[in-house]
Amino acid sequence: MPFRNIAVGRTEEVTHPDNLKAALAEFISTLIFVFAGQGSGMAFNKLTDDGSTTPAGLVAAALAHAFGLFVAVSVSANISGGQVNPAVTFGAFVGGNITLLRGILYWIAQLLGSTVACLLLKFATNGMTTSAFSLSSGVGVWNAFVLEIVMTFGLVYTVYATAIDPKKSNVGIIAPIAIGFIVGANILAGGAFDGASMNPAVSFGPALVSWNWKNHWVYWAGPLIGGGIAGAVYEFVFISRTHEQLPSTDY
């Protein structure tokens, strides 16, 4: 049956050394990712006198997030699975690939990693404010909500296909690259509209440090729904039901 592995987990999981190490890996990876992504935006603003909304700024953001996520996933993949995103963790839970308690432990680590990254950036830049995600002029909250659902669906679907699927075979080797690429591509597609978060942790740190919560719910609800749908679809269609790889002549 699909989703048969969904479980709350045992309380011992919260204090198990291996899970604590995995949570620490998530903390460090999220810190690395947010520091690179937010830092590149702050640097671009300083160099161009707040030109982050230009096409060059969008490309710079896409590259910085793609490279940063590639590294963040790579360095924690063998320890925690390299999730670096509450939406990915939630999608893994929906598919029965992580328990609820371990997922909550990961969430705490991811949110702390993002917050510490933003605090370090604020200190290192002599008080420059980290930019909270916001909607562009003419973009409504429901437009952004749908964008976040679709973009995060693509991200979590990619994670499932390249990193979680037990039949991934050698495709797993390129998982960090594929995950980084889909985030970079989605930023190019949606960054001009709502910032293209796809990650509640990435949105939470800047919002907390700058204390700007306007429309913040969009950056939680959209990614969690998109990630949950991707986890459910991939688990139900491609993992839970027996499927055989097509022979090469059928491609």
Rank of each mutant, 00 (worst) to 15 (best):
I239F: 11
L135N: 12
E244F: 15
G195C: 06
I32S: 07
G138T: 07
D18G: 10
W142G: 12
A221G: 11
S40P: 05
I104D: 00
V171K: 13
N97C: 00
G184D: 04
K46F: 14
N78V: 07
V75L: 02
T30N: 08
P86I: 08
S240C: 13
A178L: 14
V139E: 06
A230G: 07
K21A: 12
G91V: 00
G127R: 07
W107I: 03
G172K: 04
D18F: 10
G184R: 02
V88C: 07
A132S: 05
A77R: 10
G154M: 15
P55R: 07
R241A: 15
A185N: 09
G81R: 04
L121Q: 03
F3M: 12
I98Y: 03
V233A: 01
S136Y: 12
H16L: 10
L208Q: 02
W213V: 05
G68H: 02
A175R: 08
A144C: 11
L63I: 06
Y106P: 03
A87F: 01
F70C: 11
M1F: 13
E244R: 15
N45Q: 07
A124I: 13
T48F: 02
E13R: 01
I229C: 00
N199H: 09
R10W: 01
G180A: 05
L24V: 06
L63F: 14
F133Y: 15
N126C: 02
F181G: 01
V171W: 13
V183M: 10
D165S: 09
W217S: 11
F33Y: 14
V209Y: 03
F27N: 01
V141Q: 09
T162P: 13
A7G: 08
T30S: 05
T99C: 08
Q110T: 00
T130S: 12
A61V: 01
T30E: 06
G140Q: 13
